[in-house]
Structures are given as structure tokens and as C-alpha cells.
Computed example of a mutant assay.
Amino acid sequence: MSKKKEALLAQYAGHITEKFSETPNMAFLDKVVTGLGPAIYNRDAALVSGSDESELETVKANFLIKKLGLEDGPHLMHAIKEVIREYGASERNKYRAVVYYILARRFNKEGIYK
């Protein structure tokens, strides 16, 4: 594992611990990060804008529906907004890997990442 990816994993794990009061499953977090590919190294792609509705729709369509295979419905957007709220308005950098990790765990879809 590269030093850069290792540092990002540690940063993401810190956010999961601090913002969501969870002890991260590092093996699962690594799978989520690996699934994001090179996007984790691009600042714009690595972050989720919690105030941008089109960004939240993208998370819903591309991650929750396409990747996790969930049925579309208002519960999906509610879950995304709940994670964004818990992440905190004061936290400007809402990392996509953290948001995806939390959403996958909340929907019990860790098995998608094998």
C-alpha cells in the first residue's frame, strides 16, 4: 500500500471515529477506498458537497442505487442527508470515502465489497 493511501486511510478512520463515534473496520474502509480508485487523490472528487443537491443526487444514483443495489425512494436521500448532518456543518471536508463507508454500513451492504 502506498504511503499516500495509508495516510488517507488514517485520515478517514479519524473522521469516522470523531464524527460518527464508531471504531472503523479498517479492512472494510480499505475496500471502500480501493473502490473509489484514483478519485481519492483528486481533491474535488474526494469530497462530497453536502449543500449541493445535484451532488447528493449523484451519491444516491451512483452509489446507493448502482453500487449497493438499493431500491430508489425518499429513504435514500434521507439517509444521505442524515450522514451529512452527522458529519457536521462545521466540517468543510466531507470525504466521499467516509460518506460511502457510513452509508454502506447503515444499509448493511458491506458484502458488496468482496
Rank of each mutant, 00 (worst) to 15 (best):
residue 87 Y to H: 11
residue 32 V to A: 04
residue 60 K to D: 10
residue 73 G to N: 01
residue 28 F to T: 09
residue 105 R to F: 04
residue 58 T to M: 12
residue 75 H to G: 12
residue 100 Y to F: 15
residue 44 D to Q: 13
residue 71 E to P: 08
residue 30 D to M: 03
residue 37 G to F: 02
residue 93 N to C: 12
residue 95 Y to L: 10
residue 77 M to G: 06
residue 48 V to H: 01
residue 57 E to R: 13
residue 81 K to Y: 11
residue 94 K to I: 06
residue 42 N to I: 10
residue 69 G to K: 01
residue 103 L to A: 02
residue 31 K to D: 05
residue 88 G to F: 00
residue 60 K to F: 01
residue 62 N to K: 07
residue 81 K to M: 15
residue 98 V to T: 08
residue 85 R to M: 14
residue 68 L to I: 13
residue 75 H to I: 11
residue 47 L to Q: 05
residue 85 R to N: 15
residue 84 I to S: 05
residue 102 I to R: 01
residue 105 R to H: 10
residue 51 S to L: 09
residue 66 K to F: 13
residue 76 L to I: 08
residue 86 E to I: 08
residue 20 F to E: 05
residue 102 I to L: 05
residue 58 T to V: 13
residue 38 P to V: 15
residue 28 F to C: 09
residue 90 S to Q: 14
residue 108 N to R: 13
residue 76 L to T: 06
residue 68 L to V: 13
residue 99 V to A: 00
residue 47 L to F: 04
residue 34 T to R: 04
residue 69 G to W: 00
residue 104 A to C: 02
residue 79 A to G: 12
residue 80 I to V: 11
residue 92 R to I: 14
residue 25 N to M: 02
residue 22 E to Q: 09
residue 22 E to M: 09
residue 76 L to Y: 01
residue 72 D to R: 07
residue 90 S to M: 12
residue 49 S to W: 07
residue 109 K to S: 14
residue 102 I to Y: 01
residue 65 I to Y: 08
residue 35 G to M: 06
